[in-house]
């Protein structure tokens, strides 16, 4: 997981292949379903709570951890388990020095 501003510029650069393109996966049209999730209410520095983080079983059999794009309170009263998601490219955070960190997230279908 990306740890707030502790993700330094060199670390962000080194992780681009994994975070941008899920290297090792066929990203185009990748879909999956949520097998576990939690709502983060106390966020680390650089993130704004609340937001949802979950484990997704993607169609090629891999399990991935990432943020689930969802609007609270829409998802607070319903279970997201087994909900279908697609992998999308989003901004994960913006550092105080202006650097934007990008990567994959999961969008509810």
């Amino acid at each position: 997981m990306i740890d707030g501003e502790n993700m330094t510029v060199p670390l962000y650069w080194r992780m681009q292949k994994e975070k941008y393109g899920l290297v090792g996966s066929n990203i185009t049209g990748l879909k999956g379903r949520i097998i576990s999730y939690t709502i983060i209410r106390a966020a680390p520095e650089g993130f704004e709570a609340p937001y949802v983080v979950g484990v997704v079983l993607v169609e090629n059999g891999e399990k991935l951890v990432g943020e689930i794009c969802a609007n609270l309170p829409d998802v607070e009263s319903v279970s997201l388990i087994d909900r279908s998601v697609s992998v999308v490219f989003r901004r994960i955070q913006t550092h105080s020095n202006g650097l934007r960190v990008y990567g994959y997230k999961f969008l509810l279908e």
């Binding site: 990203i27 999308v88 490219f89 989003r90 901004r91 994960i92 934007r100 990008y102």
Partner: peptide
């Protein structure tokens, strides 16, 4: 656009 979307992320989606 959502707060985590910008010119770059939307371009990636269209390009895919």
């Amino acid at each position: 656009a959502s707060r985590d979307e910008d010119t770059i992320t939307m371009a990636v989606e269209a390009a895919r």
